[in-house]
Design a protein around this nucleic acid. Structure first.
Lengths: 251, 251
DNA sequence: CGGTGCCTTGAACAATGTCAACCTCTGTGG
DNA sequence: CCACAGAGGTTGACATTGTTCAAGGCACCG
């Protein structure tokens, strides 16, 4: 079954990568066509995942990474004592699952916040491709570097900013990432709940809500539930770059 | 010049890796001797670095990663507005510099907290070795996975714990890592300042100090400046595993 | 021996978590 | 079509916690 499927879909997949609107993001370096061919061959078609469905769950054997084509995903992990952490959100063009590299099983779960569509890449074959071609390896190294930096940024946000600044930071980050995928950087649709945002930036949902209204009152945003419009990107950015809190960090 | 140096030092370095006390940590998988040979060849001798000296500085071209042989290192980065972040500490056996992978230049600085000795590995040659041998690549993937998990752990510590728990968490983490290098897991020498600890776990130095005394009063520790003795590892661990704070995370 | 940096301790204050009430929206079943 | 239930969001009042500011002690090093 699988074999037949692969044969039938080989051509389709190849076209998919070559023509995919995400290609500049997913495969940003100018790669020769032969290369696209190689990559296309190992991509596995994935059925779309419904809202609240999972791409993978924490603890499952680590087998695939995914490139997100459409929709948004939240990355959560649950500690032994049952506390749920939101590690981050993924937008179209992101590679999902790399955080589990080097562990035998997924260290977190990837949950669809709305119906999503993805490409799947078996990790074994990706590794094989990496050892065949150093460009691919370097690409994964780069991706890993990004992943790591993302974590650092998230950590620093927790250290440095007060509630309003953290939310501003989150919004700026999100706007930038959406812009990279060609969407508006001022009209955001935040498909995640206030609680998820709070779990990500380390605030109680009530505080998230209050911060939204304060930013709105200050004229920086227009907030309508999950729809958020950034009215004054410059001032929002300034808020992020300023550090009001924590004398002990300054010095 | 380089060529000659390599020839002369080839034998010396090779012995060094084969006999190094850190070998089980640095090269944990049972690798054939031919492999040790390959790795030994690309290792560059490094002069020891004095206290407060740097292995590399933020912004320099990313050229080498280092294996720490002796001493401790703090990893710091400075944001544009001059705030210093402590991203973590390194102990013997750690690979240092991987966090800059995928960026052209070092994203942080590595500062010696005491006189240190290291092995240097040119990143270009490491990459070359990776693309020649998939075992080495997987080893780096693993190391990166560890690096990433470390960041996640640090992030979760900030989200979840109150001051005392964060300090306990830091101590448990440090004890565990020291234990892995064969040192005592109960008698710690913390070469970093209270301020550095605070910057790492997100507390003012005063709060770090107060938390130390509270843990001491509770009979969990014996604190004498930088010398910390863990008297009751079990209770300390329980403190870490418990989550007193943040109802909003629990649910 | 004096100074400088680091650590500790105390007291006041500010920020955010907590608890509780109310609101809106959505989906469901009568 | 409407009533209702439940979840998510907002807002208010209060308690808690950690930062801030200030002062004093200790050790190391000139």
């Amino acid at each position: 079954m699988v074999g037949e499927l692969k044969v039938i879909q080989g051509g389709r997949e190849e076209r998919r990568c070559a023509q995919c609107s995400l290609r500049p993001i997913c495969l940003p370096e100018s790669l020769p066509d032969s290369y696209i061919h190689e990559i296309s061959k190992i991509i596995k078609t994935q059925p779309p995942v419904a809202k609240n469905g999972s791409l993978y769950r924490q603890g499952e054997a680590f087998a695939m990474v995914y490139a997100l084509r459409a929709g948004t995903v939240k990355n959560v992990s649950v500690s032994e004592d049952g506390i749920e952490y939101v590690n981050g959100f993924h937008f179209p063009g992101d590679l999902i699952g790399l955080e589990s590299l080097g562990h035998g099983s997924y260290t977190s779960s990837a949950i669809a916040l709305e119906r999503i569509s993805v490409c799947g890449v078996p990790i074994k074959q990706l590794e094989a491709l990496c050892s065949e071609d150093s460009r691919m390896m370097r690409r994964i190294f780069d991706e890993f570097g990004k992943e790591f930096s993302g974590g650092e940024v998230a950590r620093k946000r927790l250290l440095r900013h007060d509630a309003e600044e953290r939310l501003a930071d989150f919004l700026v980050e999100t706007a930038k990432r959406l812009e990279n995928t060609g969407r508006s950087s001022t009209d955001l649709y935040l498909s995640m709940s206030r609680r998820d945002i709070g779990r990500y930036i380390g605030l109680a949902p009530e505080t998230v809500s209050r911060s939204f209204t304060r930013l709105e009152d200050a004229g920086l945003l227009r907030v309508e539930g999950k729809r958020v419009q950034i009215l004054d990107p410059r001032r929002l950015l300034r808020l992020v770059e300023t550090t009001s809190s924590l004398r002990s960090l300054k010095d």
